[in-house]
């Protein structure tokens, strides 16, 4: 899986391309950890380019969310394809992640409101 990052104002957009599964989950965790070390804890995960997820991949997102929440940050999800959104909702992650139609609106949400947390 390819991960591109871009700083947009207060937020960092991580644009994922490919498959988010047990084989690629570690690289996402490493990337988020790297961002956190640099103080970049307001993250938008742009999933428009993700064509497959499984529970291991989404589990890594939960781990990332908890790690940045501890630092006072948040992760927001942008533009998941319908297939990806279906798995996301199947395991009920839409209750802990805010999901936006585009990376732009997700970035704007960090300007408009505070951060959420998950225990």
């Amino acid at each position: 899986m390819e991960i591109l990052d871009e700083i947009v104002g207060k937020a960092t957009v991580l644009k994922l391309n490919g498959r988010l599964d047990s084989a690629s989950a570690g690289s996402l965790k490493d990337k988020v950890k790297d961002c956190a070390k640099k103080g970049r804890i307001h993250l938008v995960i742009d999933m428009a380019g993700v064509d497959f997820v499984d529970s291991s991949g989404l589990g890594s997102l939960v781990a990332c969310l908890r790690s940045v929440n501890k630092l006072g940050g948040d992760i927001r999800i942008a533009a998941p394809q319908s297939r990806v959104r279906a798995v996301f909702e199947l395991i009920r992650l839409h209750h802990i992640f805010e999901v936006f139609d585009s990376a732009g609106t997700a970035v704007s949400s960090f300007r408009d409101a505070g951060t959420g947390t998950v225990s």
């Binding site: 499984d54 529970s55 291991s56 989404l58 589990g59 890594s60 939960v62 781990a63 908890r66 798995v87 199947l90 395991i91 009920r92 992650l93 209750h95 802990i96 998950v118």
Partner: peptide, 11 residues
């Protein structure tokens, strides 16, 4: 509790 794993068989 939104655990990080344990969803496989359910899915």
């Amino acid at each position: 509790r939104h655990p990080e794993g344990g969803y496989g068989l359910y899915i």
